[in-house]
């Protein structure tokens, strides 16, 4: 099946077996192996990518469902791999083995905009927002991304540091 979408700003046209997931299309057909396959079941979050700005598990989605979509993977989060968030992950040791890291970074990117956009979570006091980036909100919203090395302290410290520095985010949360 022919399908076309944009990945990290680059238009891509593929002719795929309809069984190919978005994750396998990225990894095996576009050589973007930054997105990881941890379970192929939507249970671990390692494959998290952004589709039109929203995070999804790429393993739970068929590639042919994304015709016309704008997809961002870890390779597209910055030009040099050293965005403030990526640098903060290194500085706070927000990874050990590194296999969940791309998913954590994509999720974290989406979490910051979800909070800024006033989306509630399970631990939010109200459904109406606005919401602040508290540790509790962050931990809840990042819980779809498992880290077996258990780098949650470093991951959270990195995201909180960037969220505080992000003026646009802080204004939106007020």
């Amino acid at each position: 099946m022919k399908t076309s979408f944009t990945v990290n700003g680059t238009p891509c046209s593929l002719d795929l077996d309809p069984r190919v997931t978005l994750l396998d299309a990225l990894r095996d057909h576009l050589d973007l192996t930054g997105s990881k396959k941890g379970c192929d079941h939507g249970q671990c979050g390692a494959c998290t990518v952004l589709v039109d700005g929203r995070r999804i598990n790429a393993c739970l989605s068929l590639a042919v469902m994304h015709d016309g979509d704008q997809i961002t993977t870890v390779e597209g989060l910055s030009e040099n791999g050293r965005s403030p968030l990526q640098s903060a992950f290194v500085r706070h040791d927000g990874m050990q083995c590194g296999y969940c890291t791309p998913g954590q970074l994509c999720s974290a990117t989406a979490v910051m905009s979800e909070i800024a956009d006033g989306w509630p979570s399970h631990v939010s006091d109200t459904l109406a927002g606005p919401y602040a980036m508290t540790r509790e909100e962050l931990a809840e919203r990042m819980s779809g991304n498992i880290c077996r090395c258990s780098c949650y302290p470093g991951i959270n410290a990195a995201i909180l540091e960037i969220a505080e520095e992000d003026v646009g985010y802080a204004e939106a949360a007020e």
Partner: peptide, 9 residues
């Protein structure tokens, strides 16, 4: 190796 890991490389 952290820099490669955060870049997906």
């Amino acid at each position: 190796d952290g820099w490669l890991k955060v870049a997906g490389a």
